[in-house]
Simulated scan of single mutants.
Amino acid sequence: MTDGLPHPLRSDALGNRERIIEAARAVFAAEGVNAPMRQIARRAGVAPATLYRRFPTKEMLVTEAFTEQMHACHDIVDEGLADPDPWLGFCLVIEKMCELHARDHGFTAAFVAAFPKAVDFEVRREYALTGIAELARRAMAAGRLRPDFVLDDVLLVLMANSGIRATSPAARITASRRFAALAIQAFRASPDASPLPPLAGLTSPASAGSERTS
């Protein structure tokens, strides 16, 4: 008889799980979240049956692979919302989000994609996007954020940020920080700023077709 209690994974099973998660992040970074599970299994060096035993659906794998990053994302948004100066809070979110995404391009692929079947992941993603939208509304009301800003602009920045290539992870982070500073300058309200061209709707349910945050 079994005692009915959960048991820790054996060392070989734990190793398989970690390899699968690392492989998933790498494949999602290169191919997007629509990459086939068999490709992830090949990269992890495990049989497809082993992958499906650990993660029966891709939604479970996406959620598990990026849980830590989503928690970090929440903390960044909460920190920005807590700043009494909404513009400084908005800048903090852009800076730290870019750095977070520069560290893991697979997370960017998952974050900017609509992946509604991954319910837990989508709930966490929508929490972050809703928080950013609220922070943008406050910064716009204070006259610091340009009035034609839309939430999809943040996704556009993250997508562009994910394209940074550098000679080392440290160099990629440094480049990401510079890119974030340039993006913030573009977001700043300015009386002589030219109107932005229209943005095609990105795959962001929370942005509701690129509606303004005001």
Rank of each mutant, 00 (worst) to 15 (best):
64 E>W: 11
145 L>Q: 04
188 R>Q: 15
184 I>S: 05
198 P>D: 03
124 R>E: 15
98 C>L: 11
169 P>M: 10
186 A>E: 05
48 P>T: 07
26 A>K: 02
161 N>S: 14
110 A>F: 05
123 V>R: 12
72 A>N: 10
166 A>S: 14
151 L>E: 01
167 T>F: 10
133 A>L: 14
138 R>L: 10
93 V>A: 04
210 S>W: 11
90 F>V: 15
146 R>P: 06
56 P>I: 02
96 K>S: 14
17 R>L: 02
117 K>V: 14
10 R>N: 14
84 P>Y: 00
213 T>W: 09
40 I>W: 03
99 E>R: 06
127 Y>E: 06
210 S>G: 12
88 L>G: 12
43 R>C: 14
73 C>T: 15
159 M>V: 12
143 G>Y: 11
208 A>C: 13
15 G>K: 11
101 H>F: 07
16 N>Y: 00
45 G>T: 04
155 L>E: 03
203 T>F: 15
178 R>T: 12
190 S>N: 14
32 G>A: 11
68 E>Q: 00
156 L>R: 07
69 Q>D: 04
23 A>W: 10
187 F>Q: 04
16 N>T: 00
122 E>P: 00
69 Q>F: 09
170 A>L: 10
4 G>I: 08
115 F>H: 06
150 V>H: 08
84 P>Q: 06
107 F>M: 06
163 G>Q: 02
135 L>K: 03
176 S>G: 12
59 E>L: 10
81 L>Y: 09
206 A>H: 03
170 A>T: 05
155 L>T: 05
90 F>T: 15
97 M>L: 15
135 L>Y: 05
188 R>W: 07
88 L>F: 13
22 E>T: 12
8 P>T: 01
12 D>Q: 02
116 P>H: 08
162 S>V: 09
48 P>S: 11
206 A>Y: 09
20 I>T: 01
212 R>C: 08
137 R>D: 09
84 P>R: 00
69 Q>C: 02
130 T>M: 15
70 M>E: 00
7 H>A: 15
171 A>T: 02
16 N>H: 01
166 A>K: 08
22 E>D: 14
178 R>L: 15
50 T>D: 09
106 G>A: 10
39 Q>D: 13
144 R>F: 07
106 G>V: 09
84 P>S: 07
122 E>D: 01
5 L>F: 04
77 V>N: 00
98 C>P: 10
125 R>I: 02
32 G>I: 10
201 G>R: 01
97 M>E: 12
67 T>Y: 01
101 H>K: 06
111 F>Q: 09
108 T>K: 07
186 A>C: 03
80 G>S: 13
20 I>Q: 00
57 T>G: 08
203 T>V: 09
8 P>M: 03
122 E>G: 01
93 V>K: 01
92 L>N: 14
112 V>I: 05
117 K>M: 15
85 D>P: 03
36 P>Q: 11
173 I>Q: 11
66 F>M: 13
